[in-house]
């Protein structure tokens, strides 16, 4: 299987803190890959590095064979990297449809004169964009709310709007930063279905998540970070048995007890 994303030797330091430490990671094309780890493990920093919001201190990021390490965020968006944010960042004053249309910014080709004089290419572009945006709203089930103010959406709907906005331009790589946070179990199940639909439509999904049930359910590959370092990489079933992972989540005392068989019935995290 080929890799869509390859990260090698990636390091990001904030003053004295090493948030991401010499990280090597591969994300297979067409898969669902989860990054987990305790709070402060560097997961969101990793997402900011991949989406281009932060420059790395050292290391390389390769997207589909192209080195994108030095490219700013908007160039990576044009190459097919889309993302959502842990603390939802939709444009509240705009309508739901307008939010999704901003996600199609990279597809716009009309020049300023074409825009001002409403020439055919501009009109065609807007028409196509609306159709594509409505398709993205269909994907997440928000078509009926297209003309509502984005700030008026419920929390769960706002999360889905953010996914629709990220998916509008059909990205190659979708980064989901804690998509299940704050969702109830029914909403989480719907989210899992949505992520699977997105993957089968051809977009590779890389997600950060704390909901272990969700992660185990949908991901094919898991990377575990602790203090910016990769301590595990492999299929979800192997994660729970890994001693280093158990220690990172539960501390070395509990891990030692578990290893000695003193406690039974402790679930993964």
């Amino acid at each position: 299987m080929t890799n869509l994303l390859e990260v090698s030797g990636l390091t990001r330091k904030f003053a004295g803190l090493v948030a991401v430490d010499n990280l090597d990671m591969q994300v297979a094309a067409g898969g669902i890959h989860a990054v987990i780890g305790p709070n402060g493990a560097g997961k969101t920093t990793l997402f900011n590095l991949i989406s281009g919001l932060l420059p790395p201190t050292s290391g390389r990021i390769i997207l589909a064979g192209q080195d994108v390490t030095r490219l700013p965020a908007h160039r990576r968006a044009a190459l097919g990297v889309a993302r959502t944010f842990q603390n939802i960042r939709i444009f509240g004053a705009m309508t739901v449809l307008e939010n999704v249309l901003t996600g199609l910014h990279t597809t716009a080709r009309a020049t300023l004169p074409e825009v001002i004089f409403r020439l055919p290419r501009f009109r065609r572009q807007e028409r196509d964009a609306v159709a594509q945006a409505m398709a993205a709203l269909d994907l997440v089930g928000l078509r009926d709310q297209a003309n509502s103010r984005a700030a008026s959406l419920s929390y769960g709907d706002a999360r889905r709007l953010e996914i629709a906005r990220a998916m509008a331009a059909r990205p190659r790589l979708l980064l989901l930063d804690e998509p299940a946070a704050g969702l109830n179990p029914a909403e989480t199940t719907r989210l899992a279905d949505l992520v699977r639909t997105i993957r089968s439509a051809g977009t590779t999904v890389l997600l950060v998540e704390h909901d272990m049930g969700f992660v185990m359910d949908i991901s094919e590959d898991v990377t575990v970070l602790s203090f910016g370092r990769r301590i595990f990489g492999g299929p979800p079933l192997a994660v729970r048995q890994d001693p280093a992972v158990i220690e990172a989540y539960l501390g070395h005392k509990v891990a030692a007890k578990l290893a000695a068989g003193a406690t039974t019935g402790v679930r993964g995290a």
Partner: peptide, 11 residues
């Protein structure tokens, strides 16, 4: 509204 989100949209 949000420069960071706009940049990620490709602006």
């Amino acid at each position: 509204e949000d420069e960071t989100a706009a940049a990620v949209m490709g602006v």
